[in-house]
Amino acid sequence: MKHKGVIFDLDGTLLDSMPIWDNIGSKYLRTLGLAPAEDLHEKIKIMSLLQCAGLLREQYCLPYTEEKIMQQINALIEEQYRSLVPLKPHVITFLQRLNKAGAELCIATATDRYLVEAALERLGIAGYFKFILTCGEAGCGKDVPVIYHRALELLNTRLDDTVIFEDALYAIKSAKAAGFTVVGVHDASAASDEEAIKSIADSYIYTFEEWKVEER
């Protein structure tokens, strides 16, 4: 790969963080000493955090406001970013190679900055990235390409010299529509979108070992 700029998504692309979100409702209930129903995950996986808090409050008769429940869940998520979330396979070797090849790297993520920083610091990889950009800071979600355009500006690389690694279909769609080169990264959480991603993205990889870096 000769790309000078690389924009990485974080969750599901660099970090194997999806299982945290997948089971967050159950984990939260267990911290309260409650047993989650088996179908809880199916029910909440398409919900926003606020909707999820409402459902938990009602079905498990929790003595907290929805806002308080959201706070508690966020604290639980934060704890996992700080102490647990691992890198996906071959990420560290890939970052080392890109760094040696002189590429400029950044992260464009929907996750809040303090969580991103906590995880990157613990994993010792913060230094590989020129900057972190969050959807919150960009002002839009990845359903529009604003965050990618902003990242490109900050990287100071050309559109045709820059590549995005991303695991989520909706984000890949908006990046492709904006003319970016996008590599779809396999993640178990997006397995049902695999074929759709393959048809849109420029390439599709199961792990970063497949992506060859040309050393300069």
Binding site: L87, I92, L95, Q96, N99, R122, L123, G124, I125, G127, Y128
Partner: peptide, 9 residues
């Protein structure tokens, strides 16, 4: 960068 990552990981 590699020294930091190696130590952390």
């Amino acid at each position: 960068l590699d020294v930091s990552a190696a130590r952390a990981l």
